[in-house]
Computed example of a mutant assay.
Amino acid sequence: MAQTSSKIGGGLLVAVLLAGSYTFSVLNPGGGGTQQPAGDTSTPAVYVPPATKTPTSSTAPGTSVTPCSNCGGGGSLPHHILAGYWHNFTNGSTALRLNNINANYSLIIVAFTNTDPGKPGTVTFSIDPSLSSALGGYSQDAFINDITTLHAQGKKVIISVGGQNSSVSVNSADTATNFANSIHELMKTYGFDGVDIDLEQGINANSMASALRQLSALAGPDLIITLAPQTLDMQSTGHDYFQLALNIKDILTVVNTQFYNSGTMLGCDGKVYAQGTVDFLTAQACIQLQGGLRPDQIGLGLPAIASAAGSGYVAPSVVNDALSCLAAGKNCGSFKPSTTYPDIRGAMTWSINWDATSSYNFANTVGSHLGTLSG
């Protein structure tokens, strides 16, 4: 998530068919924007659709579904959720207090923590002075009071680690412990309900899994854990982000993959799909469903408006089509999953602030649609 303009990462990925297998090359790894790291430009492992496509859960369209009882983590979040990032900085989008967020957002992700250079793995947080000034004064106490207000409305607020400027590294036992302890302190100080991992410059799956398990032991079963990998990071279970998701599956709330700024990718059927289409969203989500994640652990991450990302923007109505396709087999494009996933968790957007510049078109369109999904 870029703090100065948009969430731009990755590059244009071109799938090349060679003797029945697929390789990838990365072109223009800096993407189309500014102030954003290139992300993971390593050659990904080849995704091979499993011989037997056994879904983690399925229900015939139209069948009623009770809320899943085995969801790992997440406290009292709704069955289907709309998540959005809130800017703790100014960048040309709408500056907002937490208590002025559109009511359709059930999970607010505060972006971002800072790094403590004197204690590796440790993160900190404070209200950005430029934001406070833009809002006519926004103190720590006011911020905490706003989180309390959101809690009273049934909303959850978590803190995000990563984004464009992050330099935190969790790659050892000591840094994992430092990370867990520092996030827990922020939760106690501000009232955060959990943590979002948005490390776009690489991740150590084992060390981060250890850190999040330590945090879970400190915070208890209501801890919310979300991940925000780039599309490339979830192309194969061999990738570190996918490994992390599977390593913490029992305590993981949702993976909100950034289905944008990614170029062309393979879908779970081995076909090539261009970003910015309903097929891209559904065929990418299918990889995660077939790779071992539950439907309730998968969210579709999209930019709220075109200027919030370098590429891959789709109208909110297309997000709705993708959710309907996955949940009920309706409004699909050329790709249609072999089964339905009425427990699909929902959507995420970068960002609430960018959404506010368009009168919350994303939240109003996608948020209202989530209530119509089966389950």
Rank of each mutant, 00 (worst) to 15 (best):
A173Q: 12
I251N: 02
A228I: 06
V195R: 00
I251L: 00
S210A: 07
N181E: 15
D233A: 14
L218D: 04
A173D: 14
N206W: 04
A209K: 05
I197E: 08
L227K: 01
I225M: 09
R213K: 13
S210F: 05
E200L: 14
T231Q: 10
N247G: 00
Q243P: 00
E185L: 09
N178K: 11
L244E: 01
A228N: 11
P229D: 01
V170L: 08
D196Q: 05
S182W: 07
I224G: 04
N171C: 08
S216D: 06
A217F: 13
Y241V: 01
S216E: 03
A217S: 14
N247L: 03
H184Q: 09
A211S: 02
D240F: 13
G202L: 10
K249C: 08
L218W: 04
L218M: 12
L252G: 03
T226H: 09
Y241Q: 04
L246V: 00
Q214H: 10
D222G: 06
E200H: 12
Q214N: 04
T226W: 06
F179N: 01
I248N: 01
R213W: 05
N171G: 12
D174M: 06
D233N: 14
F179W: 14
A205R: 07
D196T: 06
G191I: 04
N178S: 12
S236E: 09
L244V: 00
I224M: 02
Q230T: 11
L215R: 00
A180R: 10
D198S: 07
L246A: 07
D193I: 01
D240C: 09
T175W: 11
S182H: 13
T237M: 05
T175E: 13
V170K: 06
E200Q: 15
S172T: 14
S182D: 07
D240V: 00
E200R: 14
D240I: 00
V195I: 14
V170G: 09
A217T: 12
Y190F: 15
Y241P: 02
E200P: 15
F242A: 06
S216H: 10
Q201Y: 15
I225N: 05
I225D: 01
T226N: 09
I203S: 04
I225E: 02
Q235I: 05
T177S: 15
N178G: 12
N171M: 10
E200I: 12
G220N: 07
S207N: 10
S236D: 12
I183K: 00
N178D: 14
F192P: 09
L218Y: 15
G194Y: 04
S236V: 07
V170Q: 06
I203K: 07
T189K: 15
D198P: 06
Q201M: 12
Y241L: 00
I224Q: 02
A209H: 09
Q230L: 04
N247Y: 13
I183G: 03
I251D: 03
A209N: 03
E185K: 10
